[in-house]
Amino acid sequence: MALLEITDLHARYGMAKSLHGISLSVEEGSIVGIIGPNGAGKSTLMDSIMGLVENTGSIKVAGQETTRLDTSDIVRLGVGYAPERAHLFPYMSVRENLLVGAFTARETIEEKLEQVHDLFPVLKDRWAQETATQSGGERQMVSLGRALMSDPKILLVDEPTIGLAPKICDGIARALKRLNQEMGLTVVIAEQNVNFALSLAQEIHVLETGSLRVSGTPEQLRSDPELTKAYFGH
């Protein structure tokens, strides 16, 4: 069953129209990658799913239409979001950031904290540190952790590797894989870093100037010479 189903989604940011009739679905338990160049509309797509951007069309989460819902209700339905640039609370500690993430899921706080600390042990050691003073990698971990605290069914991750060293990207990739394989979480990753997305996702959608250009498995996309030239190097 499709956990997330998007049909004919149009969205605009201010005066500019930035998504033109996107349709795609995400199966439960899968990892899906959305790739495309800067400005293709990846973040607008993620923000639309969260109800943060004015949009028309249909978005269903576990069969329920969400286009008229407030973001807080979409989070309650089970959508977690680690956005680009994290949007953490800079003068709160790591622990306080995580606790805010549990605003809609207060019964599972201890269990989720344990899960986050298991995935990112460094956050357990740094629990009292203000996130404003953390490194980019740690901030990304807090961002993913905060999204997990809401006990989501599906996790949206926007540019998780931007500006991070390769070693840290590997750590993030391992964590996302574990979340999917061990905890059954459905994951949607928007990435400019194509190799990162290809290494994780079972299905890839290529977004260009607000429209879906092509969708397929990583193998299918790699076999397309034009796409290979544009995205995967020679």
């Binding site: 969260m50 973001t71 989070v75 709160m92 805010v100 993430g101």
Partner: peptide, 16 residues
């Protein structure tokens, strides 16, 4: 506090 520091961060944490 969350709203005072980052409104978008607060919204995606499920805060109305």
């Amino acid at each position: 506090q969350a709203v005072s520091m980052d409104a978008k961060g607060a919204r995606i944490s499920g805060i109305n």
